[in-house]
Amino acid sequence: MKKILTGSLLISLVLISCKNKAEEETTTEMLDDMKTVFIGTYTRMEGHVEGKAEGIYSLYQEPKSGSLRYGELVARITNPSFVKVSQDGKNLYAVSETGSREGEVGQIFAYSINEHYQLKELNKLSTKSGAPCQIAIDQSGNYVFVANYMGGVVMMYSREKDGSLKEHKQIQLENPEESHAHSVTVDEENEHIYIADLGNDKIWIFDFDANTGEINPNEQAFVELEKGAGPRHFTFSEDQDYAYSINELNSTITAFRRNDTGGLEVIQNISTLPEEFKGDNSAADIHLHPNGNFLYGSNRGDNSICAFKVGEEGKLSKIGVYPTHGKTPRNFAIAPEGNFLYAANQDSGGISIFKIDKDTGELRQELTNFEAKTPVCIEFVED
């Protein structure tokens, strides 16, 4: 998509830019060279956060310098704590993370993205349980998954031609009173689905048929992690032979070897924290660098990004731990070119910007944290 700005949007951008003395004058030509980023936020007071934002925002990233510029509020929605753009760039999906209050269940919203990167709501559906916290899309782009933190419920939706959603299947995990499904991950082959269950300390494994939309338990069914680990988010190595879980409760990353049938074998547990850290911490997000050589995770408490080298046998060696100079870095994103990492500091507000050394994996925070209210999710739109 080419960014063609309306007059009102350009005026809005310039006015906001003038308020921020650190930013230069915004021009249409400059924006044409930038990448669009959507930001999910918290908008109201919850037990774990004091939401201060109004919904989903658009930003612009300058690929060479890594700097960010304000776009606009593109959707007013309660607690859009996770947003996901479809592979074809035509749609954005957002959870409304409600359900912490009596009688509430969460919702998923489907939006179309126009040529100005503005959103139009297509439809919204219940997630059938409380506190939906993550969205995944299968490799065909035909199915959308939502993990609900409450009740062990994972919802699967079919994606219609216009990008709207239709309820397809409900997956109920075992031990629902203790289960906390935190993420769904689909492998590159589009044959297996992995659900990180923080409450049960398990990664559930399912076989997936993208042609029919059928999901059935894998012959292994699950892999169990250390008691009290709390698996939260999950990703694969570049060759898909290994996988990694970042574990919220004991601040570790677990490395797995993956077999031909999709099963997992634990091969390593490694701390996300610096050796000298003694306080309380909960690990959050995990991402592989686009070159496949480095793995990164976020720490809430130590308030840092941890960096690891990915070895030939899938095992990790720590490169370093880098402070975000913000409070509670939750989700983070690596720019498509692999030059910059952006971390959303939920409680202090602001987005930390790191320059990535693509040869060593080291991080360097060159730029001042970008101002943003209770940001929790960062999603790039790839051209």
Score class of each variant (00 low, 15 high):
residue 361 G to L: 10
residue 201 D to G: 02
residue 314 G to T: 07
residue 40 G to I: 13
residue 170 Q to R: 10
residue 166 K to E: 02
residue 75 A to R: 05
residue 356 I to H: 04
residue 228 G to D: 01
residue 245 S to H: 03
residue 248 E to A: 09
residue 285 D to P: 04
residue 104 E to I: 09
residue 40 G to E: 10
residue 323 P to T: 15
residue 308 F to P: 15
residue 157 Y to C: 05
residue 272 T to V: 09
residue 57 Y to I: 06
residue 145 F to H: 03
residue 200 N to W: 02
residue 74 V to A: 02
residue 179 S to V: 08
residue 125 L to A: 09
residue 188 E to H: 15
residue 150 M to V: 12
residue 119 L to Y: 01
residue 278 K to E: 13
residue 75 A to V: 04
residue 378 I to D: 00
residue 243 A to F: 06
residue 83 V to L: 04
residue 81 S to D: 09
residue 338 G to K: 14
residue 116 H to R: 07
residue 205 I to Q: 08
residue 196 A to W: 06
residue 209 D to Q: 06
residue 95 V to S: 08
residue 116 H to P: 00
residue 70 Y to C: 00
residue 167 E to Y: 01
residue 139 Q to N: 10
residue 318 K to S: 11
residue 219 E to S: 08
residue 269 N to H: 12
residue 184 V to C: 08
residue 145 F to T: 07
residue 32 D to P: 00
residue 64 K to N: 14
residue 336 P to H: 03
residue 272 T to H: 10
residue 217 P to K: 10
residue 154 V to P: 03
residue 55 G to N: 07
residue 19 K to L: 12
residue 267 I to H: 13
residue 312 E to N: 14
residue 171 I to Y: 04
residue 236 F to K: 02
residue 60 Y to Q: 04
residue 279 G to K: 10
residue 58 S to P: 02
residue 189 E to T: 12
residue 125 L to R: 01
residue 302 D to Q: 15
residue 28 T to E: 14
residue 46 E to P: 08
residue 162 D to V: 04
residue 91 N to P: 00
residue 138 D to W: 01
residue 264 L to H: 05
residue 304 S to F: 02
residue 358 K to S: 05
residue 79 N to A: 10
residue 42 Y to K: 04
residue 140 S to K: 06
residue 117 Y to H: 13
residue 324 T to H: 09
residue 197 D to G: 06
residue 58 S to T: 15
residue 16 I to A: 10
residue 240 Q to V: 03
residue 134 Q to S: 12
residue 254 T to E: 02
residue 70 Y to S: 08
residue 71 G to E: 06
residue 76 R to V: 09
residue 292 G to N: 14
residue 164 S to G: 05
residue 124 K to H: 12
residue 229 A to P: 02
residue 163 G to S: 03
residue 350 G to D: 12
residue 85 V to M: 03
residue 277 F to Y: 15
residue 230 G to R: 12
residue 291 N to M: 09
residue 325 H to Y: 14
residue 97 E to S: 05
residue 232 R to T: 03
residue 213 G to N: 08
residue 133 C to E: 14
residue 326 G to W: 13
residue 148 N to E: 10
residue 255 A to M: 07
residue 38 F to K: 11
residue 366 E to W: 03
residue 288 L to Q: 12
residue 80 P to H: 10
residue 166 K to Y: 00
residue 71 G to K: 02
residue 316 L to N: 07
residue 15 L to A: 12
residue 334 I to V: 14
residue 231 P to A: 11
residue 367 L to I: 15
